[in-house]
């Protein structure tokens, strides 16, 4: 998340707070320039990378971007398309032509109904936040088993870790299938003990994902993990 400033002092800023003089730096997200000063606009951690100053927000609503891998829930079905809840302000639209099956007009309902959960990718987002989804692609499918958890969108990177290291470790420990959507939804599937442990690990990330103590707390939880092969 904030690679490049490890060891540097972490600074929590609130909206309106001056971060420092502009002096030729670029202003990134979560900040604005005012009278030669950089002002924070969101509650979060200051990040300076390649002369760009921005604020990593602690909380935010999921705003879809094209290319995002997300876990969506069918909210409405029409003859030739589905409206999906993507955990953001607006529903996403999945047209029949971007479904993984060959769908006849009027037969959308036979493939997916309200409440069904899918892995999808954001195909396109326009400036008015209209979202088009696709299910054509590797790993994109309807999820027929397992459970869904929610985490703050800003902690998604913490659960994945650098190069998905943390995610691989979690999968290894509890012997579960785990997928993390960019929209703050996590899918877990495995036996009862494994799922229950994975659930507590994800809940820990939700509560403490932004804290320095997260790694240590996760390691402590690891000691309570069910032994592989016991189940």
């Amino acid at each position: 998340m904030s690679q490049g400033q490890i060891g540097a002092e972490l600074r929590l800023v609130t909206p309106g707070m001056a971060i420092g003089p502009l002096s030729g730096k670029r202003v990134g997200s979560g900040a604005l320039a005012q009278n030669e000063e950089i002002i924070a606009t969101r509650l979060g951690w200051v990040r300076e990378l390649n002369d760009t100053v921005s604020v990593d927000p602690i909380n935010s609503t999921y705003m879809p971007r094209s290319g995002d891998l997300i876990i969506a829930i069918v909210a409405e079905v029409r003859n030739n398309l589905w409206f999906m809840n993507v955990n953001g302000p607006f529903q996403g639209l999945l047209p029949m032509s971007l479904a993984p099956w060959k769908v006849e007009f009027g037969a959308a309902r036979q493939h997916m109904g309200i409440g069904d959960v899918v892995m999808a990718r954001v195909q396109e987002v326009d400036e008015c936040h209209n979202v088009v989804l696709t299910m054509k692609g590797v790993g994109l499918r309807r999820l027929n088993e397992g459970s869904i958890l929610s985490v703050p969108v800003n902690h998604v990177d913490r659960i994945r870790g650098n190069n998905n290291e943390t995610l691989h470790r979690l999968r290894e420990i509890c012997d579960c299938r785990i997928m993390v959507g960019d929209n703050g939804r996590v899918w877990i599937d495995g036996n009862a003990e494994g799922t229950s442990w994975a659930r507590s690990a994800i809940e820990l990330a939700s509560k403490s994902g932004h804290k320095l103590s997260f790694e240590a707390e996760l390691s402590a939880l690891e000691n309570d993990a069910p032994k592989r092969g016991d189940a």
């Binding site: 829930i73 909210a75 309200i114 409440g115 069904d116 959960v117 397992g146 459970s147 869904i148 009862a192």
Partner: peptide
């Protein structure tokens, strides 16, 4: 409220194990 089918499935599975 939107009820994910996976949630109902999971609750039913947990109930079988009295969990």
């Amino acid at each position: 409220a939107l009820v994910p089918t996976l949630l109902r499935q999971e609750l039913a599975r947990l109930a079988e194990n009295d969990a």
